[in-house]
Amino acid sequence: MPVRVVESSAPSQVSGASSGNTLPQACSLLTVGQTFSGTQNVSSLQNEKDEAWRVNVCIQGCDLDHGYLCGTMEALNVPMADTPVVTFWEGEIVDGKNYTFFTGKWEATPEDDIRHWTKFPSFSPLLSRVEADGGKTLDLSSYQYIFMRWKEQYFVNVGEDCGLTIAGFYYVCFSCSDGSISGFYYDPKSSPFQKLELKATNAGRSGFSFSTYEFQ
């Protein structure tokens, strides 16, 4: 979902070497076609009133072997938009093999990474190892949480002059137990720590689905 610019249980080897198989476990709720619904709080520091946009997410592709995920994000009640705003995003799954907890791009420093990851309670058991090497020696294959970064690539149904930005990216934590997703948006030019909260839905699996879009 584009963001308005404003001015202004532990893994099996937290303390041991990696076994070489660090890919996250397969999860039935992290598959192509799965949908999620929730909100993103976009309140700025200058605005004391909470403002949240309703958000729908649909997974379009998932390749755990290569740490890849992609999908669409639809923001509904965006004040400056006449219609829901849809973006296409690509995700990096933190697995110690393809991607670590250190972003290394998108203007994010290791300090930024730690500052955002530590906002997830499930990250606490991993902190010391991540500070040491980004988590390269962690075995996350049996962990009940999957950490990711989502980077929006382009607007699907509106132009870039819509008044919104997709310059930043999301730090994301996915719960394998209930399919819930929490995330924090990072962009130095936008309100900090905009929180994304989503829950898995049955849309598309019981007669309901989001709109379909043709990607070019």
Rank of each mutant, 00 (worst) to 15 (best):
L164V: 11
H66M: 07
V94S: 09
E90T: 10
N98T: 13
D63T: 08
T109A: 09
N47D: 12
Y99I: 05
V130N: 12
Y145Q: 10
R54K: 15
V86Y: 07
P79T: 00
Q144A: 14
V156F: 00
R115A: 11
G96C: 12
A108M: 13
F155N: 02
T118L: 02
D113Y: 07
H66F: 06
R129H: 02
V86E: 01
S122T: 12
V156K: 00
Y154N: 07
S141D: 09
E74D: 05
V156M: 03
Q144M: 13
C58P: 05
R54Q: 15
E92L: 09
Y145M: 07
L69N: 05
L69V: 09
V85D: 00
R54V: 14
F102H: 10
A167R: 14
K97Y: 12
L140N: 06
D133Y: 04
G134H: 04
Y68C: 12
V94K: 15
C58N: 15
G71L: 02
D112C: 11
S44H: 01
Q46R: 00
E107F: 15
K119R: 13
F120N: 08
L126N: 11
G163P: 00
E131C: 02
C162A: 10
P79W: 03
V158C: 09
S141W: 07
Y145W: 13
N98P: 03
E152T: 14
E131A: 04
G134K: 10
N77K: 06
P110G: 05
E90Q: 15
E152Y: 04
Q153E: 14
E92P: 04
I166T: 03
T118K: 12
Q153G: 05
S122D: 14
T137S: 15
S44V: 01
Q46W: 08
N157E: 06
Y154T: 09
L45F: 10
Q46L: 11
A81W: 04
V156H: 01
D50A: 08
S122Q: 15
H116P: 08
K151P: 00
V78Y: 01
K105D: 12
A52D: 02
D133M: 08
S128G: 00
N157V: 02
A75Y: 03
H66T: 14
S44E: 00
G168K: 05
K136Q: 05
G91S: 07
D161E: 13
D113R: 06
K97T: 11
E90G: 09
V57W: 01
P110H: 03
I114K: 10
S122R: 03
T100A: 01
C70K: 14
E107D: 15
G163I: 04
T103C: 12
E48F: 15
K136P: 02
A75N: 11
G61M: 10
T137Y: 13
F102G: 08
T118S: 11
I166Y: 01
H66R: 15
F147T: 06
N47I: 03
A75G: 08
L64G: 08
T165A: 10
D50G: 09
D95H: 04
T87E: 07
P110S: 00
